[in-house]
């Protein structure tokens, strides 16, 4: 029992208090796509009245380009964490990396289509 006690204390003394930073980073990267899509959707909503006033939809192009750049950047970094060519077994970092890639793809598509709506429908209609 005394041996177990000593081992337990030693192990705790050296253990990390939180999840590893690369896992937390993977989690944050996975959330970038959804967050930017949500921001883009609401920004686009808010831009409708001023765009009608300006009689031009360039603002939608700008916010869409910015959002897509951010999403694709996060997706690329997630891809590096996923590393699909690796032969290592599944780890939580690779799992979150894959989630980041797929979420970036889905939300890039959604962002693109939301932005493209502004090319079809005039803000003053």
């Amino acid at each position: 029992m005394a041996g177990t006690e000593a081992r337990t204390r030693t192990a705790f003394a050296g253990s990390r208090p939180h999840s590893p930073p690369e896992a937390v980073r993977a989690l944050l990267l996975a959330s970038v796509g959804p967050a930017l899509w949500f921001g883009h959707l609401n920004a686009s909503y808010l831009l409708v009245p001023p765009s009608c006033e300006w009689r031009h939809g360039w603002a939608f192009v700008v916010v869409t380009a910015v959002a897509l750049a951010g999403i694709s950047g996060a997706g690329r970094r997630s891809w590096a964490l996923w590393d699909p060519r690796s032969h290592d077994g599944p780890t939580v970092v690779r799992f979150l990396g894959m989630a980041g890639v797929v979420l970036a793809g889905l939300f890039a598509l959604t962002t693109l289509l939301v932005g493209a709506s502004a090319l079809v429908v005039h803000p003053c209609h």
């Binding site: 959707l41 686009s44 909503y45 409708v48 009245p49 009608c52 889905l106 598509l109 959604t110 289509l113 939301v114 709506s117 502004a118 079809v120 429908v121 005039h122 803000p123 209609h125």
Partner: peptide, 19 residues
Amino acid sequence: LPPLVLAFFAVSSALIAIP
């Protein structure tokens, strides 16, 4: 609401069918 706003939300609504 303006049709462009409706279009934004229509697109997102349809895309939820994918996941």
